[in-house]
Nucleic acid binder design. Structure first.
Lengths: 230, 230
DNA sequence: TTTTTAAGTGTGCGAAAAACACTTTTATAT
DNA sequence: ATATAAAAGTGTTTTTCGCACACTTAAAAA
């Protein structure tokens, strides 16, 4: 069975995991100082090779969890990159994903261990190989995805306020949004639950917490109600 | 240099090429009777393995041209699929693309040689492995892409009529469009050139030929004019 | 009790999308 | 020559949606 394709070339397949988080009105990406040659010490995304007995999804979840300590994370595939000489270390096909995590769940201890740091996406600068392109493509994908699907909530804690949510979308789209229009539209969709408690950390008055009702959203989608996002 | 990653597993990497064409108001996909085991004789998309010294793009162009005789084809990547057991013939990562071709350029002689046939996308039915999912994902991608980019023209000859173009978009979106609204919108964009000649093949009156002016479109995009499609 | 600061709230206008039906052209049939 | 048939071509009205816009409220701190 495993000999059927025996004459074909076999290649290294890597996954690269772009870990994104949101804090203080900014989107941040986890950047690592690369541990191996070539380009040891260079600023890099988190990558790893796909093993014979794991799927792409399993591989990227493994790599992501290794650097963040967070499991069961929302991920999207950006695409596969396969130029012959994209990696001077060898012929490597790279499949790129981005992961959206709640930064509060990030395991800070892993930061020193792996030499990672959170960098505001506005200030990332150059990265090794074609990683800068991976990041740009991922952010482009995220913007498209955010406009039609409720993916942003994965970057927030379970309970969040409307000002927080607005600043998240402002960070994703890199432009200011009108407060009244934003609130009107997001509340009209009917997938946010207002809670009784307030977050007082950023104002005297405090802002009510909300929660995303995924069950209701899924139900609406299943029944053909079109729920387009912001 | 090539020994740097020597301990890592190497995998088979395939490209699958979904060849789409348009004729008689219908979108068709090229389906092949598979030549090799396993699943020899099954209804399949066109695939091939990526060689050590070719990029993904080169591989898929090679595979596509082998079955259609058409080169320099518009292609889009759909994604990479990497479940461990997706192919009973071995551990294969598949990177899926779709190609949009003008069916008039298709080399009919290759049809018999490779046992291919054009099938209306409405009547494709079951395919081997996860190819049915590849096709569904590709069509989804094509719909999104068509709404924002002028990709449909790749499915038409250089000269086409507005009724043809409309029926193409109707096929892509699988719904009827209003003739007046369609024509108004597409002409207002200012990227179609009306020619003097008429196509008389489908009506007594005849319909004027048009041509897509890619240079003008690119110029408009470069200068920030947003040209959204239908 | 005054001040400060962010949270919260409603309306009106303009542009774009969607609905809608008749006229024109011309080959073919009578 | 005239009638017919069949698809191409053409504008206007209505509706919807996005976008601009400014004041009030709550509550801690001074």
């Amino acid at each position: 069975m495993t000999l059927l394709y025996s004459k074909e070339d076999r290649l290294l397949v890597a996954v690269d995991c772009i870990v994104l988080g949101f804090q203080d009105k900014e989107i941040n990406v986890l950047i690592v100082k690369r541990k191996l040659n070539p380009l040891k010490g260079g600023r890099s995304l988190m990558g790893g090779f796909v093993r014979k007995n794991e799927s792409l999804n399993e591989a990227v979840a493994r790599v992501g969890a290794g650097y963040t300590g967070v499991e069961n994370v929302y991920m999207e595939q950006v695409g596969a990159y396969g130029e012959v000489n994209r990696d001077p270390g060898g012929r490597v096909i790279s499949v790129v994903y981005y992961a959206l995590i709640d930064m509060h769940r990030f395991d800070e201890q892993l930061k020193d261990r792996h030499n990672t740091e959170w960098v505001n996406i506005k200030n990332v600068g150059a990265l090794i190989l074609d990683h800068r392109r991976f990041l740009d493509d991922a952010l482009h994908h995220l913007r498209l995805q955010s406009a039609t699907h409720p993916v942003g909530f994965n970057l927030l804690p379970e309970r969040f306020t409307l000002p927080q949510l607005q600043s998240l979308y402002e960070a994703i789209y890199a432009r200011d949004l009108d407060k009244r229009n934003f609130r009107k539209k997001i509340l009209e969709m009917g997938v946010l639950e207002k809670l009784d408690e307030k977050d007082k950390s950023s104002s005297k008055r405090g802002a009510f917490y909300y929660r995303f009702n995924k069950e209701k959203y899924d139900y609406m989608v299943k029944n053909g109600v079109d729920v387009s996002f912001i």
